[in-house]
Design a protein around this nucleic acid. Structure first.
Lengths: 211, 211, 211, 211
DNA sequence: TATGAATGAGAGTTCATTCAT
DNA sequence: CATGAATGAACTCTCATTCAT
């Protein structure tokens, strides 16, 4: 039924996602999985490799989910909205996922950054390709920036949720809050797509300076 | 000039921001600061308190910077754009900052989450208040969602920069890339403000469902 | 042909001899032998018993080789030289052997010392008996000391070989070096046997003292 | 008085020498020294470095002792005998020493072999130089072989002592046994020096062959 | 015979923290 | 203010060994 290996992976996902790679010991995972500590090393070789296994599994599922949403029928408008939904659905189902990636990006853990880079690469390339119809080729409205903005808008909700929960007087992961966020993001995409039809008018009057 | 205490704070900022609280030892900091390890405990009492000191200092500076941008003269349009610039400027100057907050939100470190919450509270309240003129009172276009989206769009660039650098063929922290990102964000704010003038038309046809 | 049991014994001899009992794990041996780790316990019961099996096999072969050299025809002079050759030949063929014994004597591993003692006992007794014609009965030229000296002179070359290789500009196990060492040892035995014919004249003038 | 560092070094010498590097844990040493385990890492950084420290200290003392014996007045005959005495005296005083070296040579522990090589180099070079008057330049009676033989004859007694004790009916480290061994070694040196005066007559009749 | 999965004990090492000076 | 020495707790990882199959 529940093999030792699978129990370990499940416990690792949960604990790493909720507390961070560095704050979870192998002992914690073995206890949560109900197995001997040494079994983790038997199956995965090291704590690092266990973490990488979790990461790769997520990246794989993630990629499959977005790909499916994009490749189904419809015009670019429909497809983009479908991808937004798939993206949100994935976060809802795998609440540990955005936090795992954020742990790595915020600590630049050198053993894991390459894994994230490899995992994100196809997603980024896909975004560039699929936005090419609507985005400018370069400049402030290029696929590069559009992707970053939408991804940030989606991710931010899920990664900051537990921190912001007591500030907003409701938990950001409650179904009705998610639904409202989903509506916001669809609205945002519409707004952006509409604006891309019009010529780019740079903002003026700003007197700030870089660095 | 460079007192022990200040050296410690500087080293802690740098190291914590670049590598994460859990991956930096008191020894690392003491060596980077050129002081004895025990001195850190003399001045700050514990590693936790040192980290809190760094956090609070940042929150304070951050708050002051945004407040100054907002309170200066101009209509809401001008002021919002000025805040965007101030926000970006702060990230450019304190590259460790967004990563520190992200470390805490992604690991939910229970000793530090309250600090982040206290630090973010005035910012969030201020955003709600200042957006009240243009935002809906509730729903997908409320101040709540607008703030989250713009904050995510700004932060995402800086927190993911080192991870994405090799994927984009340029470093996201290079001045000209920052300048382009800045232009994008101003454009985004313009687009959003324009759209808020029009009545809300929800996106239809989506067949996705919440978890 | 190559049964699991034999593969294990061969791998164990090689690895234990080259690296030491404590530095070789059961896993190392099972991998080198190409068998499952548990099979070693099935055949030998424990790591200790496996080591003992290797030791006993060597002692047996060793004893047979020396015995054969000694019992063949000839006067004591001829026979001693033949034993020297057999001794050297055995070391050349079983380069792991002297190191195994040395590991035990230098670490006094209490589980294995008795095995070595039992294994050496007949050799020592035989040496006493066979040297009785030429050696003094007691004192500095007794069989006791002669045996120790010659054994040390032979063994030392083989046990220190890998350490001294880069110091001498040649490897001590190269055939021509072995041949020269062999000649030296025969010369040494001649010199000692000659001297034993003359009355013992103790060395004088030494002003050293025991501890 | 007895600083933590010195206690650790003394305990390490004793335990490593008696039981072998691999059979002694850091915990064993810390308990024998009456200090906390972590203090060993504070002072020496690692178990390996602690062992190296012990080795280097011994090599230094050893070198000094032999050098003093050799450089004092007298002809080569007197000086060689004095070195033999110094060599034996050193073993008597530091009974752990020959076993430490033998552990390394018999296990070829790759981190320590270089240390032994560096430590032995000057001793070997010195032996070559000092024996140049009496030894052949090459061949079976070269300084190379003479050194190896005498060193083996001396060392063998001390390294095999505990193993052979129950075989001989007396302990090889008892003062009167040491005294007898000392007499034997002086006799051996005399015999060898005398023989070197005569031309070399190779042993014949041997029908053995190199592997 | 042979194996993959599992385990308890213990290894070396790091860490935040304390304290006498 | 500042330090070197010292410590208890916890960490990742390895090991010999067992057992169901």
């Amino acid at each position: 039924m529940s093999s030792g290996r699978d129990n370990i992976l499940l416990a690792a996902e949960e604990l790493f996602g909720a507390n961070g790679f560095d704050r979870i010991s192998v002992r914690d995972i073995s206890e949560a999985a109900g197995v001997n500590k040494a079994l983790i090393f038997y199956h995965f070789g090291s704590k690092d490799e266990l973490f990488k296994t979790v990461l790769l599994k997520y990246f794989n599922d993630h990629h499959i989910a977005l790909e499916a949403a994009w490749s189904a029928s419809g015009d670019i408008y429909e497809r983009l909205h479908r991808v937004i939904d798939a993206y949100i659905d994935f976060m809802v189902e795998h609440h540990a996922w955005p936090r795992l990636v954020q742990q790595i990006s915020s600590t630049q853990h050198k053993d894991f950054v390459p894994i994230v880079q490899e995992g994100l690469l196809p997603l980024v390339r896909w975004a560039e390709a699929s936005l090419s119809e609507v985005a400018d080729e370069t400049g402030p409205r290029s696929a590069y920036h559009l992707f970053e903005t939408v991804a940030g808008a989606v991710l931010h909700h899920f990664t900051h949720a537990p921190v912001l929960a007591p500030i907003w007087d409701q938990t950001p992961l409650a179904p009705h809050v998610i639904a409202e966020r989903r509506a916001h993001l669809h609205w945002l995409v519409d707004v952006i797509l509409d604006a891309l039809d019009k010529p780019y008018e740079p903002y003026e009057k700003s007197d700030s300076q870089d660095s």
